[in-house]
Amino acid sequence: MQHKQKEKKAIITVKGLQKSFSTGEVEQVIINNLDLDIYEGDFTIIMGSSGAGKSTLMYALSGMDRPSGGRILFDGKDITEYKDDELAVFRRKNCGFVFQQIYLLEKMSLMDNVLTTGFLTGEKKNNVIKRAEDLFDKVNLPKITRKKNSSQISGGEAQRVGIVRALINRPKVVFADEPTGALNSNNSDAVLDVFSKVHEEGQSIIMVTHDKKTALRADRIIYLKDGKIFGECLLGNYQKEDVERTRKLNQFLEEMGW
């Protein structure tokens, strides 16, 4: 498996990543000299206990937050050197985001939420609208719902809109921060199915989760502890009802002290 990973192209390469926060005179290190490769087409899950630095790492990889030190090469380009507005352009072209709290824009329709991102790249409006309709179809959100406001739909539906918004610009990587954390079991499964579906189509995904059921969907699991990679597990392609896969994940997490 390790050998197969090496054959894949690394879309993100992290070298000596540092992230610390100062609270008064005390400096708290969140990410400590971390090296990591993320491969194209992989569904990578980041796990770890609370405060391990999972979200911090993910937001640093996506250019949402600036690291304190080290380099992040995204598709060969060092994004740590980018200025704020260059990072914004980088994000709109390369990254899609799905958040636990979903964060839809309240004062507009679901379709407008998606188009607000879609129209950013300067692509022809009709093409973007067509793609948005296709993506809405893919996540099973009916046309009538698309005109609604975010406060008029369920959490599961809202998260599916979040996924459509993340995918609308055909990002190189979709970053998801505990996307099922606020959903009930049914909605959670539906959302994960969408993620698996788009992954099958070749979409690279990096997801932070605490949930074992979610982690089962991954190709690769990275376990963080005290700001460093404590362990890594390769699960291969996701298959439903895969007992061996479940056993392997359980064993890995047990080793990690989960």
Partner: peptide, 13 residues
């Protein structure tokens, strides 16, 4: 928060 969302999805300052 809304501005944060805009920034996250790629709107520049």
């Amino acid at each position: 928060q809304e501005l944060g969302i805009y920034k996250a999805i790629g709107y520049s300052n």
